[in-house]
Design a protein around this nucleic acid. Structure first.
Lengths: 155, 155
DNA sequence: TATTGTTATACTCTATAACTATA
DNA sequence: TATAGTTATAGAGTATAACAATA
């Protein structure tokens, strides 16, 4: 019969180690830590990059739709976009069809910034999960996509 | 809560949908959202529960070790533990062997609270990933454990 | 000198609700 | 009435740095 022997540095997690919510939280903290170790002090943070990137992929996207896709609440989105606007990266336009809405685009400066940032961003993302095999990493990505309700097919 | 009728406005993510850091962030947001939908307004939040649970599994654990395992910074740990102490759930003890350290244990009230909370906590964790098959869910858990550098024993 | 924990400060992210202007 | 966005406020969570006590 196997005995579980713990040195005094071992910590029993009592089932927490199989709880998906807990594991996702830990994984995200590791990722965040690795981000600062690796890319350090860029002006654009991952959250801001994702906003800029999605705007660059969908010029004229409405603020509400962008927020829905990135799970950013409206009140927070307003502050985020204003900060990016003040940096001269994003421009807003009120469409005549619906004058409540705001359509977002990148400025020229914004496009340059995204172009630069995308290089370190995707290199950083590529470096995540380096301790997994290529197949495991792919499976993890596919399972996460399914977990959050994204189509697993090639979007 | 999200009763939005979607027109066919698709949003291109331009590769973001395969970025593990992005997916982990999205997954964690979904989990958090589901937590409030499902278990609502308990006094103990997931982060606090995990601290109490690990103390209950490791009576006398040192504050520094607990923080290392749960990736909670020292300054934040101090505030967290003090709040739990003020609720009468946790007690601290300065060991003679090292009078810089703090050893943590649950009070009787703390043990009762954890016993109660563990029921809804693990039910909630079990409900996560319900859109995956049992095998997929298990694989996701195993891959997350490997991703964060946990032993994937017996898989 | 290094480590453990505390204190103080600040900034980000998020939640909520009241508000406007449109539809 | 409902929707898109804004404003204001508050509370977590976390980062940093200075600090005390102890090793």
């Amino acid at each position: 019969m196997d005995m579980i022997v713990r040195t005094k540095d071992e910590v029993a997690l009592g089932g927490l180690e199989d709880a998906p919510g807990f594991l996702l939280r830990m994984a995200q903290l590791k990722v965040y830590e690795q981000f600062f170790d690796q890319v350090g002090d860029h002006r654009i943070k991952p959250g801001e990059f994702s906003v800029l990137w999605v705007i660059s992929c969908n010029p004229g996207i409405r603020q509400s739709l962008l927020g829905q896709r990135l799970l950013i609440k409206r009140a927070h989105m307003t502050k985020l976009i204003r900060a990016l606007e003040e940096q001269g990266l994003v421009s807003r336009r009120i469409p005549d069809e619906d004058r409540r809405a705001v359509e977002l685009s990148l400025t020229t400066k914004g496009r340059v910034a995204v172009e630069t940032a995308s290089q370190w961003f995707f290199a950083y993302e590529q470096s995540l999960g380096a301790n997994l095999s290529a197949g495991e990493r792919e499976r993890l990505i596919a399972l996460l996509k399914k977990f959050i309700g994204m189509k697993a097919s090639g979007l």
